[in-house]
Design a protein around this nucleic acid. Structure first.
Lengths: 151, 151
DNA sequence: AAACCAAATGCAAAACGTTCGCAGCGCGTT
DNA sequence: AACGCGCTGCGAACGTTTTGCATTTGGTTT
């Protein structure tokens, strides 16, 4: 599988995540621990529903929403949008801004990470031509994975 | 390889759109006419709510949803997703597959169309490496427009 | 032109992901 | 151990989108 991920970044330990929260005057609670553990165990963007059920529903769904919202603000997780109206989250490694893209199978939702970002220099060009500032982008790829092609 | 902007494509007339519908065993009804007229009058992706209010609410909101869904299936309109959970639709011109991208102001939602598609050759590369087939992509740019920078 | 039928509409209700208000619980501190 | 604020769970509400169903309407046939 050509998913190489971003292993140039060191993943954060749970205790470091706890320290990060406490450093931000936030509490390291049971639900937040559960959410972080689930995210740490999954290398790909997860839906909130999946995070919730992976915690064995130890905590409320609304709490998972709030936890992920907080973690996003603290830049410990990154939100991805695959265009289906369902938010997905990935735990960020140390020093990773989370800017990367995915290749998603439209049949089975299998996800492969794409490490290159091809459009960085283009942001400058677009900013220059349009007069826009702080230009960013969202880019995701879609296709049919080898397994689904056989079916 | 940059893709051609869509203003090189001839826009469809209402009567041609009517013929297209009828050719697909679909009816050219009042609501569908209203929706098509609204879309034809706006060069940028429109939310369903906006389409609905521009028709002066002559037809039901649910009907606008159904009309746009049908038109999307018939490839007469294209759906865009700006990551805010609200679908946007653009009328396609003749021979236009609608593949292009946008630069969206995160403050005022002003939209600029980007004509080049920078990632076409990359789809091939990605398909080759991953074994995926029928690889497409979604790409949108975000930034702050000149007007909003002044505020 | 009238009748016909499937397709399309309006309306209301529901489904969906997500957010919020609030009473009470628990983490980190004193 | 006790305190206080932040956090949680629960239910209700939100906004977008979908759906069920009785009624209407477009396109076709008599």
């Amino acid at each position: 599988m050509p998913c190489r991920g971003h292993h140039h970044h060191k993943p954060r330990s749970l205790s470091e995540l706890a320290a990060r929260l406490r450093g931000g005057a936030k509490k390291f609670t049971g639900p937040r621990k559960a959410v972080l553990e689930v995210l740490a165990a999954h290398p790909h963007p997860m839906t909130i529903k999946d995070v919730h059920s992976e915690t064995k529903s130890e905590c409320d769904l609304a709490t998972v929403y709030r936890a992920l919202h907080l973690l996003e603000e603290m830049e410990l997780v990154k939100r991805f949008d695959f265009g289906d109206g369902i938010a997905r989250f990935e735990l960020l490694a140390e020093g990773d801004d989370g800017h990367h893209h995915h290749l998603i199978c439209t049949e089975c939702s299998d996800i492969i990470e794409i490490e290159e970002c091809f459009t960085e220099s283009l942001e400058e060009k677009i900013a220059e031509r349009s007069g826009f500032k702080a230009v960013t982008h969202k880019l995701e790829f879609f296709g049919i994975c080898p397994d689904c092609q056989k079916r």
